[in-house]
Design a protein around this nucleic acid. Sequence first.
DNA 1: ACCTGAACACCGTTCAAGT
DNA 2: ACCTGAACACCGTTCAAGT
Lengths: 191, 191
Amino acid sequence: MSELSTERRPRADAERNRARVIEAARTLFGERGDEVQMPEIARAAGVGVGTVYRHFPDRQALVEAAAEHRFAEIERYARTRCLGGDSGLARYLRYVGRMLSRDRGLSSAIETSRGSTGSEPRGEARARLETVVAQVIARDIEAGTLRPDCTVGDVYLIVGCLSSVVRTGSGDWRRFLDLALDGLRPRQIPR
Amino acid sequence: MSELSTERRPRADAERNRARVIEAARTLFGERGDEVQMPEIARAAGVGVGTVYRHFPDRQALVEAAAEHRFAEIERYARTRCLGGDSGLARYLRYVGRMLSRDRGLSSAIETSRGSTGSEPRGEARARLETVVAQVIARDIEAGTLRPDCTVGDVYLIVGCLSSVVRTGSGDWRRFLDLALDGLRPRQIPR
DNA sequence: ACCTGAACACCGTTCAAGT
DNA sequence: ACCTGAACACCGTTCAAGT
């Protein structure tokens, strides 16, 4: 009857192993993106493959877990540096572009988390991020630098494309952002 | 000394097999995109896997060959229907979007042909297409509906993103195009 | 010359055995 | 409870044998 929570205190070595796996995954995915293999991560973490799978149901889950801290960083940046001026969204998107260029694993996480039904929370850092992005959008619209019909969905659309451009190296992502941002500006003097 | 050309006349059955492989690949890639497997294509074509590899060096080459006729179709559409009015590029991009929605294999071909060095011809249909796209751009710029600094590279950038949006189903590709096209319009009354 | 398909290589994932 | 790593499943690609 003292079983109020389903949570179990994990064994100390289990917790340490989990941390090591995440650490190794961050480094390797960050450097080489999606091509890194599971046995290599296990080796770098100093554990067996089975241990990796004990902590993460599949490869995809590990990719997401390894990228989670980036979403937290991005959320923090958006909250502290994109709510002050009148073109916060531009600042935000350029920051995301730089992040994607530096951390190739972030790109994989964003790309693959989209094929899903679309409505799964996928980590609380992302949920928080969505809230802040909505605030950035509202602020820019009020400042008159953003078209009034712009939604969070539009920003996701653009982030996804940005990720695709960076990942494939098919062009200059800064140029893409310039075009996209122009597309998001309000029509000046419509008549 | 009568060997003026390196070309050899292929045996009749070889040519027939090649055609069958392409036909099977078009159908299957078109329906289910990148997930279709080589043995399945071989079976559908009524040949052994080895025969597929005799005609196409690897999977990627087959994907490209199967999509080649789409590039020809798109080039024809661009040439006949996008050089008349004053917003040919918008017509063009919407047509590409519809094609990508219908033929899932085209998406794979576009996606994967980008990671490369960037400067390989990759089939003559694509080379011809590039020429026509340049003409569409020039015409729209002259008509004043397109920003004067728009390049073929910009259009490729947008087609790549369009492909990514359609493939991942991460959002409404028509909405994305509306935004991108707005970004490509000339700034009205800049001062 | 070209075809066939069993065999190989590779990588994600599982599970029997160990502590 | 958790860990290990050999074994399995799967799929792209090769190649010895056949016509």
